[in-house]
Design a protein around this nucleic acid. Sequence first.
DNA 1: TAGTGGTCTAGACCACAAA
DNA 2: TTGTGGTCTAGACCACTAG
Lengths: 233, 233
Amino acid sequence: MALHKRIRSDLEKRILSGEWAPGYRIPYEHELMEQYGCARMTVNRAISALAQAGLVERRRRAGTFVAQPAMESAVLAIPNLSEEIARRGKRYRYERRSLAYRKADAADAKAFRIEKGSPIVEVRSRHFADEVPVVSEMRIINLAAVPDAAEVTFEEQAPGSWLLDNVPWTEAAHHISAITPNRQVAQELEIPRTQACLCLERRTWRNGQTVTFVRQIFRGDIYQLSAHFEPGN
Amino acid sequence: MALHKRIRSDLEKRILSGEWAPGYRIPYEHELMEQYGCARMTVNRAISALAQAGLVERRRRAGTFVAQPAMESAVLAIPNLSEEIARRGKRYRYERRSLAYRKADAADAKAFRIEKGSPIVEVRSRHFADEVPVVSEMRIINLAAVPDAAEVTFEEQAPGSWLLDNVPWTEAAHHISAITPNRQVAQELEIPRTQACLCLERRTWRNGQTVTFVRQIFRGDIYQLSAHFEPGN
DNA sequence: TAGTGGTCTAGACCACAAA
DNA sequence: TTGTGGTCTAGACCACTAG
């Protein structure tokens, strides 16, 4: 493996594992030069790649810092719900509907790829725009991966927002589908059962361990997802 | 602007404009070195960025070549429909339903960002998996941007497939929504009107000029879109 | 103003794949 | 076999900005 790749991989591991939390100043280029016994350009190449990927932020004269994760909007343009709703000039409100603790059973293990027996918390909630319910959310958090989440009730802050603030970098996979809402969802979103809805499922993990799984059901008549691609990126 | 960025930008322009078509061998690094009067590493950096972005493909001993565009699967995992259907072990079939030529009116101009008066062709079609219709497609092609498309009837080859083979690099934006099908779509997909469907709209353009607009309506019970994100790319 | 990252040079050796 | 890209070095100068 090329040296610059090994350096990049080493740094990446420390960031993804949470050893270097967001805001942490990683070693200066000349320190890494000495550490690896190589030229500065080799170190620079590794760190530049991390900056390109958005894992670190470089500031002249100050150093290089682990970036704040901003994953939710990374692949698809699915901004933080509160920001998105505010940007449309509407008032955002979050409502926690239920909170339940349990151990992952076989079904959980399969659906969320969480080890059987791991403690999990399940949060159900709604997001409102100008008092109109636009998203129904069900979320599982793996307490084995995020023990701190056990201390939070998610009454004021949405779990997605809390996770963004408290969990370092994660990887994610999305699945998008169109569904006809069941009775409960139709009731929560205050729509007829004939109204098509967009269902977004996202699993995020860190170092192979599932951090959280979320299923968000959007009112199809109000919400759209968008994605943009340019080759020059 | 940094020299490596200028070199990259220069090369990019020639590729995006179609001047250098897919398969074209771009100048060797040492030729660009002379041309720009700089060190090889500077040229290498520019070309490596293009390779990273997927615009060119580098082959040792042979040179660097403009890559085949593979845009449809770039952001979202929406593979070429025929490949996707084949990968699921089903037989793919394409059916052209209609073909119409006209000049873009004001509504077209606004919806597809095509200059008013430009010649366009509208193709409606269906895609089948094992004789089950899974996608209903409506496509507009801007003949001002792709004159060659005027010679094609799209009876055998789907327009998306033809465009991939014949149009160099483009940029794209996607919009995804959930809809309840209208009578025509329900009929085309052979589903009840209560079945939620996924609607994917994609506009692609090249050098600011719209190449094509497509609206694909997927059977929500059969198709899902997926996207994957890792910080490390 | 001092020290960081951003960029570039003029070499070099090597692996690899095309001829 | 040969020439390409892949990688690396040991310098250098500069722009920017935090202190």
